[in-house]
């Protein structure tokens, strides 16, 4: 069931992940950017400079709160203290979007600090629906859940990942944060078609898009792609993003960059690229002259 909320919608513009090292540049330059996203867990301290800066940023830009530690896939259920801390944060900053992951990270008083895969079984589906329902009830709002990157395929599953993701969203009444880089990374790692995956996601469920860089490591069979958020978005992911917009429509789009964080100008440039693609798409779909289509991406700008 969709939970009614009086939260203002997030504009379908490009945003970036807020990093402490960029706060001074952001507050002094006030760049033209749609919004900022934070990792909830970094703001679970009670006060100090982190909150002081976030408060200042939130006075000028819409916010999205993205959790990485709620562990919605935990069979044992959610950690009440963590959910309470998330609620406190959501109440304090009134973000436009709140999101979490289709993964688990917590097991019997141990937090593993990673987004771990679950087997896509009926049992896991029930676990996700139960945990998401509890989260949405406590937060009194709808959340989005993000498709993960993964590095091995689990056997004996009842669903493919995209089937599972859509079923969870439909049954739990949450939305989807479609991470286009994760789709690409997992498609390469497991040999499925990234475009088929995107096509299978009902547009109405998608509330946000993520884009990020990833790395490539050699492995026995050739190579494996690692979702490390440590570089520019690659050309293939930009192309997949363009396709995603034609399928789901213009959506708030985040550039994530969490390791080897670059100078503000580099991150801003990536956001501007996403913004440019969003605007091109919007122009094409709103123009009465249907002959204006989304232009193929000029790839020379991307790398």
């Amino acid at each position: 069931m969709l939970i009614a909320s009086d939260t203002k919608p997030m504009p379908a513009r490009a945003g970036v992940g807020l990093k402490p090292q960029h706060v001074d540049a952001i507050l002094s330059q006030r760049p033209d950017i749609g919004w900022f996203e934070i990792h909830a867990e970094n703001y679970m301290g009670k006060g100090g400079i982190m909150h002081h800066h976030l408060q200042a940023v939130s006075e000028h830009y819409p916010l999205s709160i993205h959790g990485i530690g709620l562990s919605l896939g935990s069979e044992e259920g959610l950690v009440a203290n963590h959910l309470a801390a998330l609620k406190q944060l959501v109440e304090r900053y009134q973000p436009r979007l709140v999101s979490e992951h289709l993964s688990w990270s917590q097991h019997q008083q141990v937090a593993l600090n990673d987004l771990l895969p679950v087997p896509y079984t009926q049992e896991a589906l029930d676990v996700f629906c139960r945990n998401i329902d509890q989260t949405q009830t406590i937060l009194e709002r709808q959340i989005l859940i993000e498709n993960p990157s993964s590095y091995f395929t689990l056997k004996q599953q009842d669903y493919s990942e995209h089937e599972f993701l859509v079923r969870v969203a439909q049954q739990a009444g949450c939305g989807i944060l479609l991470d286009v880089n994760n789709v690409y990374v997992s498609a390469c790692n497991h040999g499925f078609d990234a475009y088929d995956y995107i096509r299978s996601i009902p547009a109405v469920l998608v509330g946000e898009i993520h884009l990020a860089g990833h790395s490539v490591q050699s492995i026995l069979s050739g190579e494996v792609r690692i979702d490390d958020h440590g570089s520019k978005v690659c050309r293939e992911v930009w192309e997949l993003y363009q396709f995603t917009l034609t399928h789901v429509g213009a959506r708030p789009t985040l550039i994530e960059w969490d390791t080897n964080v670059p100078e503000w100008a580099t991150l801003y440039e990536q956001a501007q690229l996403a913004q440019h693609i969003l605007e091109q798409y919007t122009l094409a779909t709103t123009s009465p002259d249907k002959s204006i289509l989304v232009h193929p991406l000029n790839t020379s700008r991307l790398v």
Partner: peptide, 15 residues
């Protein structure tokens, strides 16, 4: 099929 609790317990141990 693998039970989720068992999967998560063993995976944690291994990590």
């Amino acid at each position: 099929k693998i039970k989720l609790a068992e999967f998560q317990g063993r995976f944690k141990q291994l990590l």
